[in-house]
């Protein structure tokens, strides 16, 4: 009995009656703060590849040259909409939801360092990694033609049958060496630190 009275009281609430009489489904709109797929802004991409280095999903973002201009491109099927690339981009080329505005306001920063580790047991000194490394080829153009390098400025170089790392700090974390190693002996670690307020 009490429950019947309870139900009658439920239905006699003015809020319920007015809602019942003016029932209307609100149109579905995506709120402006929704963290959607990143879109490019007007700013110029400097091809630093910070977005590609931070991206957790494989091949979700690539920086490509189209009609002479470098632009980041998103593959929608791969992107997981995490928004890390928007935070990592130093030139504010990408935008998604509210992230770009918040990043400027709070001075959010994602900074990365890269470390190379080589397993001496599986490295057979073939030198694929040294030849394929884009930074190496930039530093020592002779790598392109001869495949050997005498320069001491390169990131890594095969020396006495073993790959030796000379300048780890020059690594940009692209993992090209990892992809071309036949033995999976070389690994690149991307160490990321999240800070705010401009301090490093």
């Amino acid at each position: 009995m009490t429950s019947i009275i309870w139900y009658i009281r439920e239905f006699l609430r003015p809020a319920w009656i007015s809602r019942f009489l003016t029932a209307k489904t609100e149109p579905l709109v995506t709120p402006p703060y929704f963290r959607d797929f990143p879109v490019t802004t007007e700013n110029e991409c400097t091809q630093c590849l910070a977005c590609m280095m931070i991206c957790p999903a494989p091949e979700a973002i690539i920086v490509v040259k189209r009609e002479g201009v470098w632009r980041p491109e998103i593959t929608k099927g791969h992107c997981i909409r995490c928004g890390l690339c928007v935070e990592a981009c130093p030139e504010d080329v990408l935008a998604s939801g509210r992230i770009l505005a918040t990043k400027k306001e709070e001075k959010l920063l994602l900074s990365g360092t890269y470390h190379i580790s080589i397993n001496p047991k599986t490295c057979m000194g073939c030198g694929n990694c040294s030849v394929v490394c884009p930074v190496n080829r930039e530093i020592d153009p002779s790598l392109r033609s001869s495949g050997t390098s005498r320069s001491n400025e390169v990131i890594m170089r095969v020396d006495t049958g073993q790959n030796k790392i000379l300048h780890e700090e020059k690594c940009t974390g692209c993992k090209t060496c990892e992809e071309h190693c036949p033995n999976n002996a070389i690994r690149v670690a991307r160490v990321v630190e999240a800070t705010e307020g401009g301090k490093l």
């Binding site: 709120p31 703060y33 929704f34 963290r35 997981i80 909409r81 995490c82 928004g83 935070e87 939801g97 509210r98 992230i99 918040t102 990043k103 709070e106 959010l108 630190e193 999240a194 800070t195 705010e196």
Partner: peptide
């Protein structure tokens, strides 16, 4: 949840050393 983090599920709000934004 969407208002605070930007997504309904898989918010990705918590990172080492703090949270994504204020």
């Amino acid at each position: 949840l969407e208002l605070i983090t930007g997504a309904r599920v898989t918010c990705a709000y918590i990172i080492p050393g703090g949270v994504r934004w204020d």
